[in-house]
């Protein structure tokens, strides 16, 4: 068992837990919590894919040096992508919470079953 296997399993379990919470709960706030758990799971998955065993962080300080860099560092591209994804995740969460607040102001209920106008 290595680090990447364990964190891969964790990311999949986290995504499944988030998906279950997203689908099964009736409370809007709980749905948003499930969404953010799913988000975290995806981020862990992408970072884990870029991890290489025994390599160090992609920062070329004195410990890494400037020669044979590609033999010493982990993949920097997934990290750059996750950096972007986390900020956008916060933006999406804030937007969903603003919608939830407005929905609560309209009907005084957080139960998703009370909002029949969206059904057909």
């Amino acid at each position: 068992m290595a680090i990447e296997i364990i964190s891969l399993i964790t990311s999949f379990v986290l995504m499944l837990i988030g998906l279950y919470g997203l689908l099964s709960d009736k409370n809007i706030i709980k749905i948003i919590v499930g969404f953010s758990l799913f988000d975290t799971g995806t981020h862990i998955l992408i970072v884990t894919i870029g991890y290489l065993k025994g390599k160090t962080a992609p920062i070329l300080d004195n410990a890494v040096g400037l020669t044979d860099v590609s033999q010493k560092i982990v993949d920097p591209i997934p990290q750059a992508l996750v950096l972007t994804a986390i900020v956008i995740g916060l933006a999406v969460t804030a937007l969903m919470l603003a919608y939830a607040l407005k929905m609560y102001q309209a009907k005084k209920s957080l139960n998703i079953g009370d909002y029949k106008t969206l059904k057909w």
Partner: peptide, 9 residues
């Protein structure tokens, strides 16, 4: 830039 993540971003 020493930080490769920064140079990619």
């Amino acid at each position: 830039a020493p930080n490769l993540v920064t140079s990619i971003v």
